[in-house]
């Protein structure tokens, strides 16, 4: 009898979710497409002047990426709940938080990573000064995992309800406000030639905290929402 371990469980869930995303890789491209569409609409709405666009570019890219991630969040637990595989995670011998951490990592790898790769393109379309791009990317690298972790925590509470995308946005907004403020703050400080390390450090601290706390909180939320 091969005993299950924390590692085999974590790997099994991570591998499963990545494999599923690969089987439906067309869907994985949708958030990127969405971000591209939104970023394209802004110049039409505001006019093509480079000076204006470059001033708002970082904020638009940031908000667009986070909204694109929001769209994908409903798919984090709902399919597993509908086909009964979520119960298998709930009943598994491994700590539920650990297995959910694997799911959250898979979510970040399959939705945030493509968006991260696309964001230099979005930034270029909106005339973001090239010198600021590394700061924007650093902010995104810290903000997107936070979005995945906090989003998972909130979406876990909605498992077992009727489909409710708007509710998810409403619940997630208060959690995202500080993330957006610090991420955008870093970029706008860099754009004005001011020191930008402090807001990035705050984001990093929040990320570390969320990495430690969010999976366990997410597990508690899931058990409450499913009354297990």
């Amino acid at each position: 009898m091969s005993a299950p371990s924390a590692r085999t469980g974590y790997v099994a869930v991570l591998r499963r979710d990545l494999l599923l995303a690969w089987r439906r890789r067309g869907e994985a491209a949708l958030p990127v497409l969405y971000a591209l569409i939104v970023a394209t609409l802004f110049p039409f709405a505001l006019g093509p002047e480079g000076a204006l666009l470059s001033r708002i570019a970082a904020g638009v890219v940031l908000v667009t990426v986070l909204l694109a991630m929001l769209l994908s969040l409903d798919g984090l637990f709902r399919p597993d709940w509908e086909d009964g595989s979520l119960e298998q995670l709930l009943l598994a011998p491994q700590p539920l938080g650990l297995l959910l951490a694997a799911k959250i990592l898979a979510h970040w790898l399959t939705t945030a990573l493509p968006l991260l790769l696309a964001s230099p393109l979005l930034a270029a379309m909106l005339h973001l000064p090239t010198a600021v791009l590394p700061v924007l990317m650093a902010a995104l690298v810290l903000a997107t995992p936070l979005m995945s972790l906090l989003g998972a925590l909130v979406v876990a509470l909605t498992v077992g309800t009727r489909r409710s995308g708007m509710l998810l946005a409403l619940m997630l907004l208060p959690l995202m406000v500080p993330v957006v403020i610090f991420a955008a703050g870093a970029v706008s400080a860099a754009q004005q030639g001011l020191p930008f390390i402090a807001p990035l450090a705050w984001l990093g601290a929040a990320l570390v905290l969320a990495l430690v706390l969010a999976p366990a909180a997410c597990a508690a939320a899931l058990r409450i929402a499913l009354d297990a």
Binding site: L157, T161, R162, M171, I224, D227
Partner: peptide
């Protein structure tokens, strides 16, 4: 909103 999204009142209240 979350409270009213559940069919079971008590489950919704807890979430």
């Amino acid at each position: 909103g979350l409270y009213h999204a559940f069919e079971d009142t008590r489950q919704g209240a807890r979430a």
